[in-house]
Computed example of a mutant assay.
Amino acid sequence: MTSGTGTERIRRALAGLEYPADNRAVVRHATGAGADDAVLGVLLDLPIATYADLDEILRSVPRDPQDDSPAGGAPRRTAGDQRTVRGGGREP
C-alpha cells in the first residue's frame, strides 16, 4: 500500500475527515467512507497518535521494505541526503 495508487485510496477514504483526529476517528471515518480492507488494514497499523492533518497520516503509513518510496511515491530521504532550501542554504 505504498504506491501512489494506495496513497490516493487513503486520500479518498479520509476526504472530509475533521482534524485533529486520533486513530479511532481515522478508522471510523474511513469505514464510513467505504474504504476497502487493504486501506483499513493500513490505517489500523498507524502508530497510536492524534494526527494534525492528512499529510501527517500519510507520513505515518508503514512502508513495504521492498519499496524504496514513501506512501507519497517520492524517493525516501536517507541520513546523508541534503536538499537546498530557499535562501541558498542547505537542509540536513
Rank of each mutant, 00 (worst) to 15 (best):
R24I: 06
R9T: 11
S60V: 07
M1R: 02
D22E: 05
G87M: 03
V42S: 09
V42T: 09
Q66C: 10
P70F: 11
R90D: 08
Q66E: 13
L54W: 02
R11A: 14
S3Q: 10
P65A: 11
D81K: 05
V27W: 06
R77C: 12
A21E: 01
G6P: 02
R28M: 07
G34E: 07
D64K: 07
V26D: 01
D45F: 10
A38F: 12
R24Y: 11
A38V: 15
G88E: 00
N23F: 06
T31W: 09
E18P: 02
G72M: 08
V26T: 03
A25C: 05
A30Y: 01
G72D: 15
G4V: 13
A15E: 14
A52C: 12
T84N: 05
L54Q: 03
D36K: 09
D37P: 02
T84K: 07
A38I: 15
L43R: 05
L44E: 14
I48N: 11
R11V: 15
L44T: 13
R9L: 15
D37V: 14
G87R: 04
G6A: 07
D22L: 04
D45A: 15
Y51F: 11
V85Y: 00
A30W: 01
G32W: 10
D81M: 09
M1L: 10
D22I: 01
R11T: 12
A49C: 12
A38Q: 10
G41A: 15
T5W: 07
T7S: 15
L43S: 00
V42R: 02
E56K: 11
T50H: 00
R77E: 08
Q82G: 10
L46R: 02
Y51G: 04
P75M: 10
A52V: 14
P75E: 07
Y51T: 05
A30I: 03
G41T: 09
L44S: 14
A49Q: 13
A25W: 03
L40M: 08
D45M: 10
R86A: 12
D81A: 06
P20S: 06
A21Q: 05
P75Q: 08
S60E: 06
P92L: 06
V85W: 03
I57A: 05
G80S: 12
R86Q: 07
G32L: 06
L44F: 14
R83V: 14
I57F: 04
R24A: 11
I48P: 02
R11Y: 01
T5A: 15
L46Q: 03
D68A: 10
T31P: 02
G87W: 04
D67K: 02
G87F: 03
A52N: 13
L14E: 05
L46C: 01
L46E: 01
D55S: 15
T84F: 07
A33M: 13
R11Q: 11
P62Y: 00
G4T: 12
L58G: 02
G6Y: 03
A15Q: 14
D64H: 08
R24H: 13
A52T: 14
R9S: 14
G4D: 11
S3K: 11
A79C: 06
D53S: 09
V39H: 06
V61N: 04
E56G: 15
A38M: 12
G6T: 02
Q82E: 13
S69F: 08
G4Y: 09
R28Q: 12
I57C: 05
D22N: 08
R63L: 14
V61H: 03
A35L: 07
R11D: 08
T2R: 03
D22P: 04
L58T: 00
